[in-house]
Amino acid sequence: MLVSEKHGLTAEIESLAEKYGRTREALLPILQEIQMRHGYISEFAQQEIANFLDIHPVEVYGVVTFYAFLSRKPEGRYIVKLCQTIACDLADKEAIARAIERELNIKFGETTQDTKFTLQYINCMGMCDQGPAMLVNDDVYTHLTPHKAVEIIKSYK
């Protein structure tokens, strides 16, 4: 990471710490914002957050590794999260998964070379009546068919 980039990140974390408070309760909101803006929370960012909140870096790391929506390595600009839990599973999420994989030429758990898309499975996202369902970043898509899923992916390209 370039020094200038680090300085920028430090300033950003400091302003988030001012916004949410320099206490432990501010940890998740800060992590969520860093995640949203950068697509991941780097090792450096975790140490800086620990510094501002006066906690230990390993405590931040413990939290980041606990929550499924926080990531430690850069991910695609669009994170496609396909629900893998029972209702969507029974509605044939497999077919959706295969179609998207073929379209992007990557497997679930991977990121495209142009870092545009990352494919992930998530557990029940509460769209059981409209499965199969997926999130692209925060946007919800339901009643997917392989064809429809691919069209949605294309719209983000």
């Binding site: 975790q46 230990h56 390993v58 606990f66």
Partner: peptide
Amino acid sequence: IDLQEVGVLEATHRGYDTTISTFY
């Protein structure tokens, strides 16, 4: 973390993958 306040070790990851580890 509590007794010594050094903060090297913490439970990380989740579920069956939970492990005690250092930072990264």
